[in-house]
Amino acid sequence: MTLRKWFHLFWTTLVLGMVVSLVIGLILQYSDQEFSVMGLSAVGFNVMNMLLGGATISVLSQMGFFAYLIVRFIAAGIIRSKKVWDLLQLTVVIVALFDLAYLRSTNFEGSGTFISYSILPLIILIISLGVAYWKMKLTNRNAFIPTLFFMSAVTILEAVPALKLDNAASSFFMLAPLLVCNAWQILILHKILENKKS
């Protein structure tokens, strides 16, 4: 990857995160009058905070993406069998999705049931399956499980600060840009790394 390609990925992801955060933030602000970013309620000030929040979330997404690429590179060197690596990734996906529902239902006892806390992992799983299928269509079938792993397990790990709160608005405000930025990065990766000679 050249510096120019990395700049393209960085800036497009940054702008995408800012736009999605602004749209989601404005929807949340106008649908829930109590919603405010950083405890401030002035709309103009909130717009700036939403843009800055989106930029921060997009940078977090990019850090998670490059961390995943490094871990994947190291794991491919240690675990020689593709089947074992794929099974390990699927196991982590299942554990991450289950823990997202289970740990939140036990930590926030009284505010919901395990079934109500299972809705968010189910939404993340559906989006992850859709992006993984799309990536598989763009490249090859070997991209399905790594994309599913990145879109679900890595996104959940990146969203831990918002998931620690029992607040749907904060979870939605952080997860929506994260999912969009992660999907953008994983879907465009093969185009950025494409060698023009091949």
Score class of each variant (00 low, 15 high):
residue 197 K to E: 15
residue 118 S to M: 03
residue 127 I to R: 00
residue 175 L to M: 15
residue 67 A to K: 07
residue 171 S to P: 06
residue 88 L to K: 02
residue 167 N to S: 14
residue 132 A to H: 05
residue 184 W to F: 14
residue 70 I to M: 13
residue 4 R to Q: 15
residue 114 F to A: 11
residue 124 I to V: 06
residue 104 R to H: 10
residue 197 K to C: 07
residue 110 G to R: 13
residue 155 T to I: 02
residue 127 I to S: 09
residue 140 N to P: 14
residue 141 R to D: 05
residue 53 G to R: 01
residue 127 I to G: 02
residue 36 S to P: 01
residue 157 L to P: 07
residue 178 L to T: 00
residue 38 M to P: 02
residue 79 I to N: 01
residue 149 F to E: 00
residue 110 G to Y: 12
residue 127 I to A: 02
residue 60 L to F: 08
residue 162 A to S: 13
residue 9 L to G: 09
residue 2 T to H: 12
residue 122 L to V: 08
residue 103 L to W: 11
residue 32 D to A: 14
residue 51 L to G: 04
residue 19 V to M: 12
residue 28 L to H: 12
residue 195 N to D: 03
residue 67 A to Y: 11
residue 161 P to C: 10
residue 21 S to R: 01
residue 82 K to N: 11
residue 176 A to P: 05
residue 112 G to V: 12
residue 174 M to I: 05
residue 80 R to A: 08
residue 135 K to R: 13
residue 15 V to L: 15
residue 198 S to I: 09
residue 104 R to P: 04
residue 64 G to R: 05
residue 56 T to F: 10
residue 23 V to R: 05
residue 50 M to T: 02
residue 48 M to P: 03
residue 49 N to R: 00
residue 179 L to H: 02
residue 94 I to Y: 04
residue 102 Y to F: 15
residue 170 S to G: 06
